[in-house]
């Protein structure tokens, strides 16, 4: 671990100002950052501790809920309003990590969680995300956990989290605050980015910009599921996951909001699935067609080829469960 300066910030304004400086990283729960610092994957010269900022509340706001960025994953998952109105989010969070990690991990930090790619976390290996221009070790290496959609020839790493996948299905908005109190709202679906030529950029945050809150839209009801496929039943990142909000009215699908985890560099949303499903009578042929659309264009590098049939089947299973066919 490298020596680093430690600074506290008790206001967002002060934090963004400090974070705008080169080599500075914000820390909240630290469940991801500290591990990466020990491995020297992250080598910040300064850490700005956000924990004194008083924004860990979950509040009702017009039509929805506002979750302060410092709310713990546990606090969100056990909140009665979230459990009853946004169950997909509670389920996704509880599917991730362990109780101890969820107690510590913050909502903002979880959005910024970095990939689990084996080549990213080993500083003796090439990785364009960690060390731009050094190459991608995973492309010809061990790639069981890697992306089948949205990747580029420079990076095939996935976004590994669960919470953001549910937020993407809910079409939640991320509130950002930048220098000089400049605020903006970005859809969770647009927060993470595909690597293209610049895999070092996981998301659209500008220098100094911080996640301040996540806004959930008004409750949409429906059947909300989060299905996570994994080798062991806890403390394992998903091989693939599906967040689904599906409503059937008068025998027809009235809502089908879907997002997928661990198959792409970001929570993966394909609007074509919603367009196909809504208005139709739920049936197996329809679901198979949706699954075909999802993986149309999906590509593995060998080790991760299995994810294509796996996510296909997982989607079908989720739609069957949600529509009870």
């Amino acid at each position: 671990m490298k020596n680093f300066e430690y600074a506290g910030a008790d206001t967002v304004e002060r934090a963004t100002m400090l974070c705008a400086e080169n080599g500075t990283k914000a820390i909240a729960g630290g469940t991801n950052l500290i591990d990466l610092m020990k491995l020297q994957v992250e080598t910040p010269a300064r850490l700005v501790d956000l924990n004194s900022i008083d924004d860990r509340r979950i509040e009702e706001e017009e039509g929805g809920l506002r979750i302060g960025a410092l709310a713990s994953n546990t606090a969100v998952a056990v909140d009665q309003r979230i459990r009853s109105d946004y169950p997909v989010l509670a389920k996704a969070i509880l599917a991730g990590a362990t109780q101890q990690l969820r107690n510590k991990a913050s909502v903002g930090g979880n959005l910024g969680q970095r990939t689990r790619c084996f080549y990213f976390t080993n500083i003796d290996q090439p990785c364009n995300k960690r060390d731009p221009g050094s190459g991608c070790g995973a492309l010809t290496g061990v790639a069981r956990i890697h992306a089948i959609l949205g990747a580029s020839r420079h990076c095939i790493a996935t976004y590994p989290g669960d919470m953001a996948v549910a937020m993407a299905a809910l079409d939640a908005q991320v509130e950002l605050s930048g220098l000089a109190n400049k605020s903006r709202m970005v859809a969770v679906r647009d927060f993470h980015r595909c690597p293209g030529y610049t895999p070092e950029l996981d998301n659209i945050l500008e220098p100094g910009e911080l996640v301040v809150a996540v806004h959930l839209p008004a409750p949409v009801g429906g059947t909300q599921l989060y299905r996570k496929v994994r080798e062991r039943s806890s403390y394992a990142f998903a091989l693939c996951s599906v967040a689904a909000i599906v409503d059937v009215k008068r025998g027809k699908i009235a809502r089908a909001d879907l997002a997928f985890g661990s198959i792409a560099p970001k929570p993966w949303v394909d609007q074509r699935l919603t367009q196909l499903l809504v208005g139709e009578k739920p049936n197996m042929a329809l679901f198979e067609k949706a699954a075909d659309i999802l993986v149309d264009g999906a590509r593995g590098v060998g080790d991760n080829d299995y994810k294509i049939p796996l996510v296909r089947r997982t989607l079908i299973a989720t739609l069957c469960e949600a529509t009870e066919i």
């Binding site: 689990r116 290996q125 010809t140 290496g141 039943s233 806890s234 403390y235």
Partner: peptide, 24 residues
């Protein structure tokens, strides 16, 4: 899991080498 190109062990921690957890 070993890297085919340089022979290094890729899954070298308890998060990625999957022993059963209590729930298993």
């Amino acid at each position: 899991h070993f890297d085919p190109n340089d022979g290094h062990l890729v899954n070298c921690d308890l998060a990625e080498y999957h022993v059963p957890v209590h729930r298993d």
